[in-house]
């Protein structure tokens, strides 16, 4: 059972804190822009891409994915902070189901990540891309489902950790590999076979792939999307359900 009042108030709290903490917004926006312009801009000169999009254009969907990955995980990991500083108890003794807590937290991640992704999306003219209104709406939709799925994954992770010392472990051993094994920086079809296995297990891959479909609808070369849009959306939705269910179960346990 999912209670709307609980989901609403959990999202409202996160949103309020997000708006209040300007520095957090600046740093989450700065990271993808640094990657886009410094890494993407530099590599564009080194990587000849023929008639297709330039390298900086190619990584644009990946950079949107990166924005979503970091902000969704960061949003979910705040559960560890809530546990550490006691606020989680206020939520856990309330007459609401654990699923409401998980869905509320995942929805918070979705709202905050989508806002940040839209800010990054607004930079598209600077890398020389043309994106129409319907394309943009499709992109926002994909950003929403992807950030919900990643946030739910983050909640599942957070349910295994009690203290914020684990934060750097999660960042270095889970989040960074997820980013590099997602097809964000290089096409999945060019990866060695072993890495391709990990890439296919990574939900972020399908989100970025869907974004490639929407941003380069006519591309057919080496830099085109790797899976069909139908597969992409299906995998993300399935992943959301699985992660929410597992995270809800992880929260449900009593000593």
């Amino acid at each position: 059972m999912i209670e709307a009042n609980a989901v609403y108030v959990i999202v409202a709290r996160e949103f309020k804190k997000f708006v209040r903490e300007r520095s957090r917004l600046v740093s989450t926006i700065a990271r993808p822009l640094v990657w886009l312009f410094l890494v993407g801009g530099g590599m564009s000169r080194l990587v000849p891409t023929g008639t297709g999009p330039s390298y900086i254009q190619f990584i644009f969907p990946g950079i949107l994915g990166m924005t979503i990955l970091f902000s969704s995980i960061f949003s979910s990991i705040s559960i560890i902070w809530d546990k550490e500083f006691g606020f989680m108890k206020e939520i856990l003794v309330a007459p609401i189901s654990r699923f409401s807590v998980v869905v509320g937290k995942a929805t918070s991640g979705m709202v905050l990540s989508t806002i940040q992704a839209v800010i990054i999306l607004a930079f598209f003219p600077l890398v020389g891309l043309k994106i129409g209104v319907f394309q943009a709406l499709g992109i926002v939709f994909v950003c929403m489902v992807l950030s919900f799925a990643i946030a739910a994954f983050g909640i599942l992770l957070a349910s295994f950790y009690e203290s914020y010392e684990s934060f750097s472990v999660i960042m270095n051993f889970i989040v960074m590999p997820m980013f590099f094994l997602s097809g964000a920086m290089y096409p999945v079809k060019m990866m060695p076979a072993l890495l391709r296995v990990f890439t296919k297990l990574n939900p972020l891959t399908y989100g970025i792939d869907a974004l490639k479909h929407l941003i380069f609808p006519n591309e057919t070369g080496a830099l085109s999307a790797d899976f069909s849009l139908f597969v992409d959306i299906g995998v993300i939705l399935a992943a959301s359900i699985v992660f929410v269910a597992l995270a809800g179960k992880a929260f449900e346990r009593k000593g």
Binding site: E3, N5, A6, Y8, V9, A12, R13, E90, I91, A94, P95, I96
Partner: peptide, 8 residues
């Protein structure tokens, strides 16, 4: 307020 919403 958070509490009031949480407890409906």
């Amino acid at each position: 307020l958070f509490h009031a919403y949480l407890y409906r």
